[in-house]
Design a protein around this nucleic acid. Sequence first.
DNA 1: CCGCCGCTTCGGCGGCGGGCGAAGCACGCT
DNA 2: AGCGTGCTTCGCCCGCCGCCGAAGCGGCGG
Lengths: 233, 233
Amino acid sequence: MSSPADLARLADLLGDPTRAVMLQALLAGEALTAGELARAAGIGAPAASAHLAKLAEGGLVVVHPQGRHRYHRLASEEVAAAIETLGGLAAATAPQRRWPHGEAFRTARLCYDHLAGRLAVALHGALVGRGWIQPAAGGWTATTAGEAGLAAMGVDLKAARTARRFACDCMDWSERRPHLAGGLAREIASCCLRRHWLTRATAECAGDPLARRRLALTPEGGRALHAALGLAA
Amino acid sequence: MSSPADLARLADLLGDPTRAVMLQALLAGEALTAGELARAAGIGAPAASAHLAKLAEGGLVVVHPQGRHRYHRLASEEVAAAIETLGGLAAATAPQRRWPHGEAFRTARLCYDHLAGRLAVALHGALVGRGWIQPAAGGWTATTAGEAGLAAMGVDLKAARTARRFACDCMDWSERRPHLAGGLAREIASCCLRRHWLTRATAECAGDPLARRRLALTPEGGRALHAALGLAA
DNA sequence: CCGCCGCTTCGGCGGCGGGCGAAGCACGCT
DNA sequence: AGCGTGCTTCGCCCGCCGCCGAAGCGGCGG
């Protein structure tokens, strides 16, 4: 239960511009090394190390040492969801600024381990509209038609079921409508990337820390999603 | 669209312990004067004024001058929802501490203009279970049975329909299940307070800034809710 | 008209926190 | 073993921010 002090401690972690950049970079879902995050944030290694220690101690980030590298991930999808939510409010509160590639960012992006943006919202609608998923307690389940269709697309349903939640709604702040989260959404995103229907915009992000999250629909991806789900390009 | 800088600016506003106390006090939904907020936060008038100016400039709080008083409210229910969400993550992240009356806080509290806590979750379940509300695009609508039942309880449905959203789900962080938000939820809360089914724990909050939000079910309230909705005490 | 009261602005103080460079540690490669 | 590399720790500086006391402003009441 959150006393105001707890809230403040957590918000303070998000309230530093440098840490915010790091967290946005981590919202792409990948585990990044301290050095990568330092470069993304444009600071030196010592400062990055201090920030990451705070984030880890605050429970927002988990560390995964591997050889002489230390990989950092967001601690949970709840953390990712809270950051996205707060980002949405920030966008609503300070709507003035537009930065380069903002439009592309709205179109398709990663949110921790699943898709977000216009494409993800459209996909959510298509899955519901075609009857591939149906409401269930606290989320969605796949129908038999959905299982067949998703398997045909190349989605690993077995892997999707290992997640804590199979599928549930997650509010998309840029579209103000829900997209899909949970194990199924993770596998769909994984499938789209594996089959090169969606590609990461750039690998390294000098100057634009959100580049890691941005996705682009390939021509074949557009064709595949149209064929499978009737999605318009 | 939220650049990391926007996110950081917003989170920084929530990240100050003093401001967090003020915002928690405002989460009770009432408009409070600068002096009341200063006392709640345990600081002097100048400091409070500075904080409130920042919150207002950041779009989290709106000011409502009235005579020589200046009343402050949360700017929107989106702001309230974001603070609640972040508070839930804070509770999950730092679960160790228990402060006095925390249990009562989980039982029933105000969240901006509607009810939250165990009671609100139970109420949500009862409304759905009795078929008084049914799913609709982006939320819930009242059935004819629901209209009759709610009117019999004393809920002003006409007022409820003036809100931007009639009824929608809002995740309750302490219960991890949804409760009801929107115009209907606002009128239900208003009705419960008006009829003294629920009472505010204390008016002024020396030491415990969350006191404003805490609610207690009166004996008559327990009887009334049991009779109308079958809610157990 | 004067005085009280709520609130804001100003000036100054103190502490916290983020940044860097240098040094230290740990791991891996050759 | 020796070296390079990734990361952390240490020490330090600087700037920012929150707090207060004093003063200024405006509304309200006698």
